[in-house]
Design a binder for these strands. Structure first.
Length: 714
RNA sequence: GGACGGCUAGCUCAACGGUAGAGCAUCGCAUUUACACUGCGGAGGUUAUAGGUUCGAAUCCUUUGCCGUCCACCA
């Protein structure tokens, strides 16, 4: 054995040993009474590079899976990747931009071909990185959200919702990204603080002198105002409700309406209502039956307005409108105002609200299913604090806009009649004839699904749904979903209601929301801030086991981890300690082969103590792993191995072998040494799989399997 | 604006009602030993703040402050 542990060579070799042995595939594991234990791993985007969050996530899942596997469960850790609609499309668009092209230059088919090429090249990169963490995924079951079978699942689920009346098509004000040229759901926005202004404008009354003053951050939208709203409780405006005003510049007559939505405290307490371009105003317009007049188009330019403004970018139009208002002497004042601006979460472009035809999933029934499942404890958050946010989100939920106007994704299986253009029908097969007019060649919708619509099917679509497969029978519902908190609403909620609606059972029993890894000073790790740490770099420098050790060490009940690299170094030292202690033990053994199935009996009081401590440690590991206290668990083993076994027992063993006080003492000490070592390797294995397997394979044992499938000590 | 979490040794965290612990860092000593990626020993804390409950509080309740994350259609 080398004097020092060399992670690099060994890790690669051992991973191949496991792969060749087929240990990751549950089909190769022997049947047992314990049943199955399965986890569908969160599929990373095909655009992605492994970050610390992934490393932590996969470490946790792999520790659990390895522990359960050794306990005799049929374990499945199912890997895969997500096509990540807008994200991936944007990456490829960026690449095209360097060549001076847009996706529209290529056309839909050509562009999608490019994205597939991209996927082929980079899609599996992240999976390779997950491998290098030692993750024991069954790679034979790897899935991609745009696999043939998976696509069928997506279409079938839509068909189901359609048949049950749970999806509908409607023209609604939606979030629109003028750069991506697509609608976005409420979740796909990120609000960023920006310095702006608040303009106070006087709207003159029609039938009497006087005016009502409104405050706005977007004066250009006044061209599409359909009302002014005040709070019905507002004494200042009570007598104005129902009166008519003349909208400046356009000189259109609009009413003053009363609506509870209006905040008395803010601005002047009177709100201009632009139904087409503001979510709140849109809601008001529904309540007061106001017309929705679109004045900003899909490119963020003024449309359907007088020639002075037609075609101008909204921001340019703003200045012109303000100048005009000033000229008309209706601009009361302007103040500086900092507010939150919605941005596209994928390209950071400012979002416009625009009315457009989209598909929506009705959320009331589905939200109730999800809420009830957690209330009834059919699904539990292992940290209760996440329940509250979950319930609140579901309580305030709006219908989910699932159609996107991008190209990369699953096409909606919706067909439009060419005779009657508004009429449509759903068909998964390409229809032979139009089921509406029976004579035209129907055209398929250009839209694709929100990427989260397909991700919502992950735990069961990966197991073969909608087919009734053996995998579904054996591994569904899965046991655990393990993910980050920022993805609860995007993904966890949607998997829950999708499964409850489509399969009538929960998708998983437990939700582990793991900590977010922060920088040492408690800030978010982000690529753009340059505060990110690449886990591949840690693996390179310390080895995979040490990285896993360092991560596990820091897993506590807290919702954040302040990342400390010292723990990886500690892990590396610990690897070396394990390595050298094993080397020493083996040097003491000679050529004999040992049996570790029967626990050796103690002779000296040191023998007794170490065997006792070992037993206590095993118990602690089990309790702590069951509680998901990974940090405590690894610290217990660390303490036992280093300070009980190495510092005390091995030191004493030297004497017991050299100068035995009884005939059997030396021989018995050898038995205890290898017994304690081998057992330690077993309980260390879920945390540090490579080094433990490597050493285990070189132990002189009578009976020996691969450590990955050895029996967990009890 | 709301929710969640944190504030304990220089750093990262444990202790969750009974004399405050660990790892790393630090300081002393030891030894060429399986391992210097070592061993032994030491120093280091009015547990953010103010109040309350209790025989007893880092721990339970309340106040204030600071740090962080998430959620939210205040024009």
């Amino acid at each position: 054995m080398d004097k020092q542990y060399q992670a690099k060579n060994i890790e690669e070799k051992i991973y191949q040993f496991w792969k060749k042995g087929g240990f990751f595939n549950p089909d190769n594991l022997s049947e047992s009474k314990k049943g199955s234990f399965s986890i569908a791993t969160p599929p990373p985007n095909v655009t992605g590079v492994l970050h610390m969050g992934h490393a932590l996530n996969f470490t946790i899942q792999d520790i659990l899976i390895r522990w359960k596997r050794m306990q005799g469960f049929k374990t499945l850790l199912l890997p895969g990747t997500d096509h990540a609609g807008i994200a991936t499309q944007n990456v490829v668009e960026k690449k095209l931009k360097k060549e001076g092209k847009t996706r529209f230059d290529l056309g839909r088919d050509e562009f999608i071909k490019k994205v597939w090429e991209w996927k082929k090249e980079y899609g599996s990169m992240i999976l390779k990185q997950i491998e290098s963490l030692g993750t024991s995924c069954d790679w034979s079951r790897t899935r991609f959200t745009m696999d043939e079978g998976y696509t069928e699942a997506v279409q079938q689920s839509f068909l189901h919702y359609y048949d049950k009346g749970l999806v509908y098509r409607g023209k609604r004000a939606v979030n629109w990204c003028p750069r991506c040229q697509t609608s976005l759901s409420d979740l796909e926005l990120e609000y960023k603080e920006e310095k702006g202004k608040l303009w106070f404008i006087k709207y003159k009354l029609k039938d009497e002198d006087g005016y009502i003053e409104v405050a706005t951050t977007r004066p250009e939208t006044m061209l599409g105002d359909m009302a002014v709203a005040v709070n019905p409780k507002d004494k200042r405006y009570k007598k104005l409700i129902g009166k008519t005003i003349i909208l400046p510049i356009v000189n259109r007559e609009i009413p003053i309406v009363a609506d509870d939505f209006v905040d008395l405290e803010f601005g002047t307490g009177a709100v201009k209502v632009t139904p087409a371009h503001d979510m709140g105003d849109y809601q008001i317009s529904l309540r007061h039956k106001l017309e929705v007049m679109q004045i900003i188009d899909e490119n963020g330019r003024m449309d359907n307005v007088s020639s002075a403004y037609q075609g101008l970018k909204a921001k340019v139009a703003r200045e012109k409108v303000v100048a005009e208002l000033e000229k008309l002497d209706v601009l009361e004042k302007v103040i500086d105002y900092t507010h939150q601006i919605p941005k596209c979460y994928r390209c950071n472009t400012t979002i416009e609200i625009i009315p457009s035809w989209q598909w929506f999933v009705k959320m009331d029934k589905l939200a109730k299913l999800s809420t009830d499942a957690v209330k009834k404890k059919e699904i539990v958050f292992t940290a209760k604090r996440w329940e509250k946010g979950y319930f609140t989100w579901l309580k305030n939920i709006q219908d989910w806009c699932i159609s996107r106007q991008i190209w990369w994704g699953h096409r909606l299986p919706v067909w439009f009649c060419q005779t009657n253009k508004e009429a449509h029908f759903v068909s998964i097969e390409t229809p032979k004839e139009c089921s509406i007019c029976k004579k035209c060649q129907p055209k398929q919708s250009e839209d694709v699904f929100d990427t989260w619509f397909s991700a919502a099917l992950w735990p069961f679509a990966t197991l073969g749904w909608p087919k009734k497969t053996k995998d579904l029978e054996q591994f569904y519902p899965t046991d655990i979903i393990c993910t980050a908190r920022d993805i609860i609403n995007f993904w966890v909620v949607r998997m829950i209601f999708s499964s409850l609606e489509l399969l009538k059972e929960v998708p998983f029993k437990k939700i582990i929301i793991h900590a977010t890894i922060m920088t040492k000073d408690g800030r978010r790790m982000s690529k753009s801030l340059g505060t990110g740490i690449n886990p591949m770099n840690l693996i390179e420098r310390y080895g995979s086991d040490a990285t896993r050790f360092g991560l596990s060490w820091q897993i506590t009940e807290l919702q954040d981890i302040r990342f400390g690299e010292e723990n990886m170094l500690a892990g590396k030292k610990f690897c070396n300690k394990i390595w050298n202690a094993s080397k020493f033990v083996m040097q003491q053994l000679g050529d004999e082969k040992f049996d570790i199935i029967i626990k050796p009996s103690p002779i000296t009081k040191e023998d007794k103590k170490i065997l006792n401590e070992l037993e206590k440690t095993i118990k602690k590991i089990d309790t702590n792993l069951a509680k998901l206290s990974f940090g405590t668990a690894i610290q217990e083993i660390y303490h036992f191995f280093w300070h009980q076994f190495c510092d005390l027992y091995i030191e004493e063993a030297k004497n017991q072998i050299k100068e035995p006080k009884s005939a059997k003492e030396a021989e018995n000490t050898r038995k205890i040494l290898i017994y304690v070592l081998a057992t330690s390797l077993k309980i260390l294995h879920p945390f540090m799989p490579f080094i433990t397997e490597e050493i285990y394979q070189s132990l002189p044992l009578k009976e020996k399997k691969a450590l990955i499938v050895e029996k967990w000590p009890e």
